[in-house]
């Protein structure tokens, strides 16, 4: 594992690069990076139940939908300013996250996974059914000042800033008391209880946190793509988010960010293959998941280990 200092240095360099790059980059690459950061933020949030608490959630797209639609409806139909609209999205996501977390004590992992999937599935059909949410066409977001000024760079920087804060929080949570509690209950619930961890509270918390990340990501996605359509928030999105976490490396900080890059970039790169693109995408998925079960990050780590000279174990040295 890299040392603490080198980890911070790496993070600093990465953020600096992401901050400087858009000064030169054109609209399209900036758009792709924005979308990556948004999916990465979402994946980092989903990693809290999956990677820390070992609770498999297949409804994360539903939280992104909540974020996008709450922002869309509040700004378009009710004329709210952006910040209160995003706040509304977060509040709804927290409430829904608590609701999904509520049965988590009574259900086994599989049953709970089905509940989360059904939740995302239901929301997808709900927004299609009602006029308030624009029905099957969805909602077109008005162009914000953030997107108009300076070629849309303010919006990019807003996405980057929220991403950085989100990742920092996730790190603080994962390496602190909450993260240890979630990892403990993810390993052994009986032990967790004996150590004083309130299972229901911790599980609900993990869903609420992931909901906040998902909702903020959805809200930003609505702003960046300028429209909110049901087809963006299909149950497939939930599967993609799950895959991003697992392919990148669950339980790590960088893994979900890498995984999000994968699910954003591969479709973009395979676009030229036209109707084969989805098939190529799915095939790459299968390959990566089969070849690197511990994720892209795990693969990178073991590659680095192999390149470095092996330290001789103490027992052999003596």
């Amino acid at each position: 594992m890299p040392g603490k200092t080198s980890g911070w240095a790496f993070a600093l360099i990465a953020v600096a690069a992401l901050a400087i790059a858009p000064l030169w980059l054109g609209t399209y690459p900036r758009y792709v990076i924005s979308v990556w950061l948004i999916f990465a933020l979402s994946a980092v949030g989903l990693n809290i139940p999956i990677g820390l608490a070992s609770i498999y959630s297949f409804g994360h797209g539903g939280f992104m939908l909540i974020g996008a639609y709450a922002t869309g409806v509040a700004t378009i139909s009710w004329g709210w300013p952006l910040l209160p609209a995003m706040l509304l999205a977060v509040v709804i996501a927290i409430a829904v996250g608590a609701l999904i977390g509520l049965p988590s004590l009574r259900l086994t992992g599989f049953s709970l996974a089905i509940v989360t999937f059904a939740f995302g599935y239901m929301l997808f059909h709900v927004v299609k059914a009602f006029d308030l949410t624009g029905g099957p066409q969805g909602l077109f977001m008005p162009e914000t000042a953030l997107a108009r000024a300076w070629g849309g760079r303010p919006l990019y920087y807003m996405v980057l800033a929220i991403f950085v804060v989100g990742v920092f929080w996730a790190h603080s949570i994962a390496t602190g008391k909450t993260g240890r509690a979630l990892r403990t209950l993810g390993t052994n619930e009986i032990v967790a209880q004996s150590l004083g961890i309130n299972l229901l509270r911790a599980k609900m918390l993990s869903f609420m946190l992931s909901g906040v990340y998902g909702a903020v990501a959805g809200s930003l996605l609505a702003l960046v793509t300028t429209y909110v359509a049901p087809e963006t928030y299909t149950p497939e999105l939930s599967i993609n988010m799950f895959a991003a976490v697992m392919i990148g490396g669950s339980g790590t900080l960088v893994g979900p960010i890498l995984g999000a890059l994968f699910i954003v970039l591969i479709p973009e790169l395979t676009q030229s293959a036209q109707n084969l693109s989805e098939i190529i995408y799915a095939l790459i998925f299968c390959l990566v998941a089969t070849l690197f079960p511990s994720g892209l990050l795990g693969m990178a780590k073991s590659a680095i280990r192999r390149l470095r000279p092996q330290p001789v174990p103490a027992a052999v040295r003596e």
Binding site: K177, R180, R183, L195
Partner: peptide, 27 residues
């Protein structure tokens, strides 16, 4: 009832949940 993927120190710290102040707000 140990967490294999965490260090020895982190395991002991996880065990101190009941006595360790703090939580999400602080984090």
């Amino acid at each position: 009832g140990l967490i294999g993927e965490l260090s020895v120190l982190e395991n002991v710290m996880a065990g101190m949940h009941a006595r360790h102040p703090g939580g999400l707000l602080e984090e």
